[in-house]
Nucleic acid binder design. Sequence first.
DNA 1: TTGTAAGCGTTATCAA
DNA 2: TTGATAACGCTTACAA
Lengths: 334, 334
Amino acid sequence: MATRKEVADKAGVSVATVSYVMNNKQGVSEETRARVWQAITELEYKPSYAARSLKIQKSNNLAVFINYLGDPFEAGLLNHLEERAREAGYFLNFQTFSSETEIEFRHQFAGRVDGLLLIGQTLQAETLQTLRANNLPIVSITQAASDHSFDAIADIDWEMAMYQLLTHLYEQGHRRIAFMENEHYNHPHHYRKIAFVKAMERLQLTFNEQYFLQGGGRLEQAQQQMYSYLRASSSEKFTAFVAASDLMAIGMLTACRQLQIAVPEELAICGCENILMTTQTEPEITTIHYPRKEVAYAAVDLISKLLQQQSAPSYKISTELVLRKSTIQQVSLV
Amino acid sequence: MATRKEVADKAGVSVATVSYVMNNKQGVSEETRARVWQAITELEYKPSYAARSLKIQKSNNLAVFINYLGDPFEAGLLNHLEERAREAGYFLNFQTFSSETEIEFRHQFAGRVDGLLLIGQTLQAETLQTLRANNLPIVSITQAASDHSFDAIADIDWEMAMYQLLTHLYEQGHRRIAFMENEHYNHPHHYRKIAFVKAMERLQLTFNEQYFLQGGGRLEQAQQQMYSYLRASSSEKFTAFVAASDLMAIGMLTACRQLQIAVPEELAICGCENILMTTQTEPEITTIHYPRKEVAYAAVDLISKLLQQQSAPSYKISTELVLRKSTIQQVSLV
DNA sequence: TTGTAAGCGTTATCAA
DNA sequence: TTGATAACGCTTACAA
């Protein structure tokens, strides 16, 4: 790799001039500028990121805390995050986050990234403090369950969305509506449970802890839990299930097929997110649409602003229900 | 952020000594070592990555060229890559790669990452040359279609696997076997087509260009192409389809369901990779198992070795077929 | 319009 | 066993 010094020598100027040219500063004569560019091209000179970072105290790297790349919802979000980050000149470091590794984790980022993008995780107070001390702005995509204030949040209006979804089920005649949750509290799914509970209360529907199955956010576990639930003989069964994620909804649907439970006739199932796979199942799955591209772009824009000391108000949009066969019956239950 | 100088002052030693302690060099008295550690802890000192990178000319970052994060196969691979990279002390930069951006792309990495992890892409000769000039080792996960030699490759034995898959179809009575390809040549799917062609020849099965449908690697396109194919009236129809990816196989299955074509009775469908979703469809999909964790770990290990100037021989393992209902009939076609 | 030089926070060589 | 000090390659006053 050619260095700036070599370019300077070749062009017969000082190193400073090379910098001026590289950074498009004005006050350099056209003639010198051309000569310097020529040398740059010939030597295939590329500035050193490390040196530049050290000097300006910026890395142009952003860390993204992910929960599980095997979830298509998250992968889709990351896809768009990366897209937008590139436009903005950032490199992204994807980091799988879990509570077990949180403590060693929190010291990893100072000086290595300029900011953090979370996906609905709940951080320990001390982690938050360390990150703050290192002057790292934090933007969360999707609301975390605990409300420690990040610098900004980009999300949909979950309470509204969940209320709409439950209203739809209510109109279809459902009264006993259960929820497949993700029992890990520091996970974006957890806030969806909170929204579910609020919506149930608002509709004055009864529920208790029995109404919550633990799917762990994973398809396999959701499928297995649903299977157990369906096999357990119980006098009063639920008539509808909301899953905290589409992936879990898909697992539940498979459990129903295995046990020959008709969906939606015997049981309605719906999810959150609207991942592509919900259109490939039989029946297709009713869900809450989560506009991944829009939210991801907003999140990158927010953190860009924060890094330029601009104000960055949180972004929260309303969204739509996607009604599909898994909750729609010809004849209502009522 | 405290710097090394502050630590040195606080501990009453020189900056060099702090470095010795941080890097666990021997030759420092226990007493000084303790004093320095104390200062480090109290000041919450963390070494600066940028400074360190500049000095030792290493970033401990690796770039990963991805094709499409929306494909669960790739996302799964990345999940394991990240896992292993973390153990090895690397941060990963995921970069969506496409031919359109390849030219600007190739200058982005010098000095910013220590090496590259590809996922079956085919690079232009000049890109390869630039990367080489910058002394970046390149390891490819899955074989690229063109055989420019990377420093190492971690993959399964596609030719063997595809031959096994076709043999299975052959034994089920199929003779007219088509392939849903990904027409983008610089993509891992492309090598699977090559393996398919070889296996067809080995089994002495006839085929021509009509035998290839273009699915673009995406579920939506595969579904649509399959739909068109199925609707087009043709005297001689294929009896089996191999898709270059499971995602495309799923799209094809949906097209069949939409047109009420029975799988596997009227048409057999199978894929490659064995993503989780192939167990959630009706019928479940026969596929080639791709051990993502194993291959991903191997790839990170290979690049680690290369970065330590150790020899790193390519890794190629045989794999297994996963037989499921989408290709298995009670009564054979023969 | 261009050059000089200090400094970013490390590592590592050489002395002491 | 420890301390000075010269790089690493860049940015940016300030000087010329």
